[in-house]
């Protein structure tokens, strides 16, 4: 399919796709844009893009992992983000209130981590429950048209989670102004809050651990094996059920962690997940599936596009332009800028 499609391309599209074909070019291009943006709009734009970009990468990495391993297009991924924010809010705010009464600088510095870690755990648990309760049930019954059917299940799950949360916790925004009350630090001549710096650190460390886990550990290798050849994986003794549970748990944990970490920017409310969801998809489509390092670059590109659109055109447009851009990419390079064809892009 890919070959025949390639042959039919017009010379112009051929040229465009060649020009965008290498990962290197993309990165250079991004860096140039970033520098221009910094000069024109000020370094704040860049820093902003870096902070959110790291989190978009976490979201995208999970989304793409689940697709690669389980062939699952997860429409409910944004809901894990929402659940993460919600958990962090309900864990962090009481602790924070308690610490106001009984000040302790040490605990105050650690309290936000309690919220974020709790969110990550809750995210993983929700993922496990969903796999056992929903996806496993479908898989057990039929594998026919799995991609489409499981996608519809995630649509149902998304609707249930959103409205369930709405009924129980209401529609009001649950947010915090900041995790750490410390003075902003000066970076590149602009003041940047401690929250943003720590969140950026969390994203980088998590991505590094995640990458190491997938590449260097036996279980990580097994996860990749399942994504490359399910039958082959079974033949070497890998328990598919276990890997599938683990993968969904990991992916939802990452999304929840992102939601918790960004609570100071995205207060939690029932439908907050929609935007992170499609942004994660944008990243995945930009860099192609199953590409952890690529997710990082893609996350920055999308975040940069957003902040630039917000700055130059208007905040309300900050998803219209990236949407158009991603549609263009999907059109000229269905396998993403980094162009590795991964199973499932073209359904069997």
């Amino acid at each position: 399919m890919a070959e025949t499609a390639l042959k039919k391309r017009s010379p112009f599209i051929e040229f465009v796709s060649k020009a965008t074909s290498s990962a290197g070019l993309t990165i250079i291009f991004t860096i140039i844009i970033a520098i221009v943006a910094t000069v024109v709009a000020g370094p704040f734009t860049l820093l902003n893009a870096i902070v959110t970009g790291g989190m978009w990468a976490l979201l995208a990495a999970g989304l793409s992992l689940v697709f690669g391993v389980m062939n699952l297009v997860n429409f409910a991924h944004g809901e894990f983000f929402m659940i993460g924010g919600l958990t962090a809010y309900y864990v962090f705010t009481p602790i924070s209130a308690y610490l106001k009464e009984n000040p302790s600088p040490f605990l105050t510095a650690l309290a936000p981590f309690a919220g974020i870690i709790a969110a990550t755990i809750v995210g993983a648990l929700v993922g496990i429950v969903l796999e056992k309760l929903v996806f496993y049930q479908l898989r057990k019954r039929t594998k026919e048209q799995w991609v489409m059917n499981s996608f519809l299940l995630t649509v149902g799950i998304s609707v249930i989670i959103i409205n369930g949360v709405q009924i129980i916790w209401g529609t009001n925004y649950k947010g915090i102004t900041s995790y750490w009350d410390a003075k902003p630090l000066e970076v590149l001549g602009v003041f940047i809050s401690v929250d943003r710096i720590v969140v950026f650190g969390i994203a980088m460390v998590t991505m590094a651990i995640f990458w190491y886990f997938l590449q260097r550990t036996t279980t990580g290798r097994a996860i990749r094996a399942v994504s490359q050849d399910e039958t082959g994986a079974q033949m070497v003794g890998i328990d598919l059920n276990r890997i599938q549970v683990l993968t969904l748990a990991l992916s939802s944990a990452l999304a929840a962690m992102a939601g918790a970490s960004l609570l100071f920017m995205f207060p939690s409310y029932p439908t907050v997940g929609l935007k992170p969801l499609y942004i994660a998809w944008y990243v995945v489509i930009l860099v192609g599936l199953g590409n952890v390092a690529g997710a990082l670059v893609g996350g920055f590109i999308v975040a940069l596009l957003q902040t630039l659109t917000g700055y130059f055109i208007g905040v309300t447009w900050d998803d219209v332009i990236p949407t158009a851009f991603v549609m263009l990419i999907l059109l000229i390079r269905p396998s993403g800028l980094f162009g590795s064809e991964v199973k499932g892009v073209h359904e069997q």
Partner: peptide
């Protein structure tokens, strides 16, 4: 057109 199944849905 060139995208199959789920990717067409995404598009």
């Amino acid at each position: 057109l060139r995208l199959r199944g789920i990717f067409a849905a995404l598009m």
